[in-house]
């Protein structure tokens, strides 16, 4: 299974961060998820980043971009994917908690 991101549906609630962190550590935290919210709060600019094994999905409001590890983003948007590199990559778990607890369908599982 893989995760598909639809940033337009995201409401920035962070349930995915909680869900994925729970999957990894069985506690409630936002710190150990492979998925991470980003937000420029004053501008209402927000989206989702998902770290995968050898790249990163940047779900920005203006569209989805795949960024390879160690390569610069081709977008000049302020949000950066960098902090999430510290996280464990998505292991494509089945029946993923991030998807199950996303209330809007912004994250979905695809084959």
């Amino acid at each position: 299974m893989a995760i598909k991101v639809d940033p337009e549906k995201c409401i920035n609630c962070g349930a995915c961060e909680l869900g994925c962190s729970f999957y990894r550590d069985e506690v409630f935290t936002t710190m150990s998820a492979s998925v991470m919210m980003y937000r420029e709060e004053k501008k209402n600019y927000f989206g989702i980043m998902l770290k995968r094994e050898d790249d990163m999905i940047l779900g920005r409001p203006e569209g989805v971009e795949i960024q390879k590890e160690g390569e610069e983003s081709d977008s000049d948007a302020g949000a950066s994917a960098k902090p999430i590199l510290l996280r464990e990559p998505c292991d494509n778990c089945k029946n993923a908690m991030c998807v199950r607890f996303c209330p809007t369908g912004s994250l979905i599982e695809v084959d």
Binding site: S80, K82, L86
Partner: peptide, 26 residues
């Protein structure tokens, strides 16, 4: 460190990225 973005340093012959700093701190 968790809010740092996209920093990379060449120290000696080795490339260091900010994530490594965060790893140490964690």
């Amino acid at each position: 460190a968790s809010g740092m973005t996209d920093l990379r340093w060449k120290i000696g012959e080795k490339i260091w990225e900010d994530e490594k700093i965060t790893y140490f701190l964690t």
